[in-house]
Design a protein around this nucleic acid. Structure first.
Lengths: 340, 340
DNA sequence: TATCGTTATGTAACCGGTTACATGACATTG
DNA sequence: CAATGTCATGTAACCGGTTACATAACGATA
C-alpha cells in the first residue's frame, strides 16, 4: 500500500503538496496538481485513515446506539441515518444497547473509545440525569433520538407523543366510542407518560370522564399486551375501544382478544402506535399512529453531521404523528353497547 | 485526554513500560505495574485507538455489508454478529449495499478504506468472478454469508438450499399434493437455482413428472410474488400447492390468491422460505423453511475474528434448513382435486 | 571477584498523515 | 533597480502509540 511519501517522490513534489492535493483545500498550481494525481493513480494511493485521524483528531465516524439491531423500528432508523452519513463520506458505527442499562453504558463507552465525532443515541433505559452528566463530561456531541430531554432540546429528535396519544384516542371517540381502555408503556419512560397524557386530553376535550379502571401499565412487549388485557378482564372493565402504547402490545391484545372469543374490530376496536411493518400484515390490519422513523434517522444523521463534522444542514427536531387507519377500528353502531 | 507520555511521567517509568502494562503481553514487575495502573486511573487514561492502529496496522474492526439495514433478515444477522464481535472487544461497522451492484462495490471500497481487519459480505448482486478477483487483490480476509462460492468454500457461511427446496416440496407431497407450482427467486442467483433444483429432486423422488408450466421466475419481492401468481393464472396452470422462493413472495401470493377469491390453505397450500418474523404474524401463519439466520450472523462473526484477528473459534460453515409448519398448508382430501 | 546470563526497563525509530512556518520565485511599485 | 508583497511549494515538528534493540541491574557460576 502506497504512502504519501512514495507519491511525493514519484510526482517530484513534497509530501505537503500531495496532502494539499488530496484534501483540495489549499491552492496548488494546476500543472503540479496533475502530476500528483497521476502519481496517485499510478500507485493506487489511498490515504491511511488512521494516520489522518491521528493528526487531525477527527474520525469521520458517527457512532450510533440502538436498542436492538433487529426489529423494524431500528432497522429503518439505521437505514436512513446511514444514507445521510455515507453521502457525506463519513462512516456509521452501530452498536446495540441490548435492552439493558449496563449494555447501554457499555455501548457508549465503546463508541467513545473509538473517538467518534458524534454519537446518536436511542436510549431506552438510561435516566435523563445520567445522560446530562455524560453530555457535560464528554466533549463528543450527543444526539438523542425518539426522546426529549428538556435541557438538551437542541440535540433531540423527537415526536409529539402527547399529540399522538390524543390522535389515537380521538380516532375512537370520533367513531362513537366512549369507553376506551388504555394500555400504556412503562411509565418511567417519558414517551409512555406523554401518550397517556394525550389520552386524557382527548377524553377531556370530549367531556368523557377519566376512569382509572380502564388504564393499565404495560411494558411495550407483545406478551405484555396480552397480560395487560387479562388484567382489564379481571377488573371486569367494560370498553368498546382500546388504545395501546405501541403496536407490539396492540398485536398482543388482538391475539388475547381472539383467544377470548372476541373479534376485532367487531367486539373491540384497537389502535396501536409506531406503525411498524407488521402492523400492515397482521389480521386485521392495525390502525395505528405513525412515527416517522425514517425521518428520525435522517434528521439524527444530519444533526450528528452538523455537531460533529461542522456541517450545517437544516434540521427538524420535533415531528408530528399521523394516524394510519386500517381495519382494526370501526364506527360504533347505535345499537352497540358495552363489550367486555 | 491523557497520553501515554503523561502516564509514564506520572508513574515515573518509560512509555514503553506503560505500553506493556496496557497491552499486558510482556513481563512487567508487579510493583511497577501497580504504579502504572494507578497513574492510568488517576489520569483517566484511554489509549488512542488511531495511534495504536497506525502503529500496528490493525483496526480491531470488522466490516459488514448487508443488502438493507432494515428488514428482518439482516437485522437478526447483524444482531448476532455484533454480539460475537463485541464480546471480543472488537467493533463492527455496518454498511448497506442498498440492493444495487454499484452500491455493493461502493460499500466494500468504503470499508476497505477504513482498513477493516476482515469483511463480512452479504452480496446479492456481485457475480462470483468479481468476488474472486477482489479476494485475490485485497489482503483483507473476506467472509461471504448466505452464499457459496465454490472456490471460497472455507470463507462461506451458507445454507443447503437444495435441501431446503426439497423440504418445502416434500412437505406438500407428503400432504397429498401432486400438482405443485413453484415461484423461484431470480435465477441468476445461485440460491434461487439451488432451491429450484431441490423442488425438482423432490418431485423426482415422488415420481411426479416435472411440468415447466408450473414454474415461474420471481424476484424475491412481495409484488413479484403477486405478479408471478398472475402469470400462472394466465397460463391456466392448475395446482393445489405452491412453493415460493422466499417468504416475501409467499406473502404476495397469499394476498393475490385472496384477491382472486381463493382461500389459503383451503384452495391452495403455500410454503415460504426464510421464516422471517412476519411469517408468524400474517393470516394464515405461513408454513416455511427456516434459515438459521442468527447462526449465520454468529458464525460469520466468528469466522471474521478467526481470519482477521487471529483467533481460532470453531466455525460451522454449512447449515441445514428445517421446516416450520404453520397454517398455510393442509392435507389434500380424497375428494379434493385441482384448483384454479 | 570477575564473568556471564537473565530479565526488567529505557531509548528512539517508526507508522503515515497534517500543518505552521520558512523559503524562494516572481510580479509590482516607487 | 531595490524593496516589498504575493503565492506556490518545501521543511520539519507533531499527533500518540508500538516495538526492536540497547542498557543496566542482579544473581549464578567459576
Amino acid at each position: 500500500m502506497a504512502t504519501i511519501r512514495e507519491v511525493s517522490k514519484r510526482a517530484g513534489v513534497s509530501i505537503a503538496t500531495v496532502s494539499r492535493v488530496v484534501n483540495g483545500n489549499q491552492k496548488v498550481v494546476e500543472a503540479t496538481r496533475q502530476k500528483v494525481l497521476k502519481a496517485m493513480s499510478e500507485l493506487g494511493y489511498e490515504p491511511n485513515s488512521f494516520a489522518r485521524s491521528l493528526a487531525t483528531n477527527k474520525s469521520e465516524t458517527i457512532g450510533m446506539v440502538v436498542g436492538e439491531l433487529a426489529g423494524p423500528f431500528f432497522g429503518e432508523m439505521m437505514q436512513f441515518a446511514e444514507r445521510v452519513i455515507r453521502d457525506e463520506g463519513k462512516h456509521l458505527i452501530i452498536t446495540s444497547g441490548h435492552a439493558s442499562l449496563a449494555e447501554e453504558r457499555d455501548a457508549i463507552e465503546f463508541l467513545l473509545k473509538r473517538r467518534c465525532d458524534a454519537l446518536i443515541l436511542h436510549l431506552d433505559l438510561m435516566p435523563d440525569a445520567e445522560i446530562l452528566k455524560r453530555v457535560d463530561d464528554e466533549s463528543t456531541p450527543i444526539i438523542l433520538v425518539n426522546r426529549l430531554v428538556p435541557e438538551l432540546a437542541g440535540q433531540c429528535i423527537y415526536l409529539d407523543n402527547e399529540a399522538g396519544g390524543c390522535l389515537a384516542t380521538q380516532h375512537l371517540i370520533e367513531r362513537g366510542h366512549r369507553r376506551i381502555a388504555c394500555i400504556t408503556g412503562p411509565l418511567y419512560k417519558s414517551d409512555a407518560r406523554d401518550r397517556l397524557t394525550g389520552y386524557r386530553n382527548a377524553l377531556k376535550m370530549a367531556d368523557i370522564p377519566f376512569d382509572d379502571q380502564l388504564v393499565v401499565e404495560g411494558d411495550y412487549l407483545e406478551q405484555g399486551g396480552e397480560a395487560a388485557l387479562e388484567r382489564l378482564f379481571r377488573r371486569d372493565a367494560r370498553f368498546t375501544g382500546l388504545v395501546a402504547g405501541n403496536d407490539l402490545m396492540a398485536i398482543g391484545v388482538i391475539k388475547a382478544l381472539r383467544r377470548n372469543g372476541l373479534k376485532v374490530p367487531d367486539d373491540c376496536s384497537v389502535v396501536g402506535y409506531d406503525d411498524v411493518v407488521m402492523a400492515g400484515y397482521i389480521e386485521p390490519g392495525l390502525t395505528t399512529v405513525r412515527v416517522p422513523i425514517e425521518q428520525f434517522g435522517a434528521e439524527a444523521g444530519r444533526l450528528a453531521l452538523n455537531l460533529g463534522e461542522g456541517l450545517s444542514f437544516k434540521v427538524q427536531h420535533l415531528f408530528q404523528p399521523t394516524l394510519i387507519e386500517r381495519a382494526s377500528t370501526r364506527f360504533l353502531d347505535a345499537n352497540d353497547d358495552e363489550s367486555s
